[in-house]
Design a protein around this nucleic acid. Sequence first.
DNA 1: CGGCAGTTTGAGGTACGTCAAGAATAGTGG
DNA 2: CCACTATTCTTGACGTACCTCAAACTGCCG
Lengths: 236, 236
Amino acid sequence: MPNLSTQTHPCGACDFYADSVWKPVASCSVSILSRGFSRKNLGIGHPLYHQEDENRGVFCVSKGLIALRTNHHNGSSTLLRLAYPGDIIGFRSFLENRPHRTEARALLASRVCTVARRDAQKVVQGNPSILARLASRCISEIDRNHDRIIAAATTSNKQRLTDILLRLMKVHGEPVGERLRMQLPLSRSDLADLIGVQPETMSRLFTRIRTDGDIQVSGREIQMLVDPSLRRSGHG
Amino acid sequence: MPNLSTQTHPCGACDFYADSVWKPVASCSVSILSRGFSRKNLGIGHPLYHQEDENRGVFCVSKGLIALRTNHHNGSSTLLRLAYPGDIIGFRSFLENRPHRTEARALLASRVCTVARRDAQKVVQGNPSILARLASRCISEIDRNHDRIIAAATTSNKQRLTDILLRLMKVHGEPVGERLRMQLPLSRSDLADLIGVQPETMSRLFTRIRTDGDIQVSGREIQMLVDPSLRRSGHG
DNA sequence: CGGCAGTTTGAGGTACGTCAAGAATAGTGG
DNA sequence: CCACTATTCTTGACGTACCTCAAACTGCCG
């Protein structure tokens, strides 16, 4: 039975507490936050929510990797975002009170913290600075989207794939001698959905990257030098 | 000399007052809002702000059409948004307290209302529901960006240009007999920057659309049937 | 051993980028 | 009103990259 007056913040022990959207929750509201708080483990491939689902709250990735994807009528899909620990997802449907427009699915074994919709609304109403932090997350998403739109318009698909591999390596890579190695958390199809090409083209892009020699590719295992000075390769 | 207690809302006479982000301003804060409020006319091609400029406030388009564009190092540029009356622009740099990442420039003779940065901050702090409305505008921008990313990945450039022309016609078109006619507010280069192709390709896309026969093109003058059932043409 | 999903490879068609030149348009000044 | 210029737009030619359909291959699991 928790003591309401001294109740600890549910995110207090989280690595990302300093930047948590829930950090500004005042002590008197911590009990509401705690009431709506729950944690959930997701195995690889398991969904957190589906497209068109009603919003159940605000989700925060605590561990692993979540893919946000929209499925199209013709069966294809587009990968819109990779959500890492510390990232908030589901905030659009929460703030606009509408169904999800993307599905969220674990690419790696993941852990997600949820603040149930009703309680999240109460806490946000009682503390505007949470809304300010949510707005900041919105703006980060806008920035990411703009970067992606610009990259799609100005950069070759091969270069964009290289950029993605470098970014993934920074997060997932582990040093092996003077190299970095990672197990790709994404299938070729997922990468194709991320770049916006067909799976066959993605396969051919890997062929071209492999023959360039800077990046070693063997199935989902990727290796490269620790500090690859390969941002040069032009827009081909 | 305005009577502070009964001061009228500066947006009160605006057509978009019902959805204005400043509508929730309480009567006691109207004086602050009014203090920071100014209106400005922009001739065609004139800038509202430049890329890298410090934020001067929150801007609301009152009349005309504003293009938000990012210029790249190599001299090219990408058109990220067309802002119409009622739209808020410059909110990212305002909320995040950072320089603009886009430039804003009038495509048509325009009028823009500004709430100066310092006063806007005060008013927002005093009324969280304004922040909620700003967040809602952020989400609209995210939705637009997602639609664009999806369209770029799944739709042919010819179809995307057709979609843009239809959307522009809804706003700018005027009936002439059983047809709609408009003067394109965008140059071929601007449209190329919007779709993400080269100007030469944009010219060829127009050639192909013209030969399809559903849309008549003559320079910047576009005509089509009032209710064109031409959403059919596939992804060719 | 036999499926099965994910991936790769091949062949042919289409569309886009690039460089280049030419045509149309708008703006300017006489 | 015309001539002139600058800009914008169009067209051509050629190489590259992507899409589509198809088939073969891989690893994995039953």
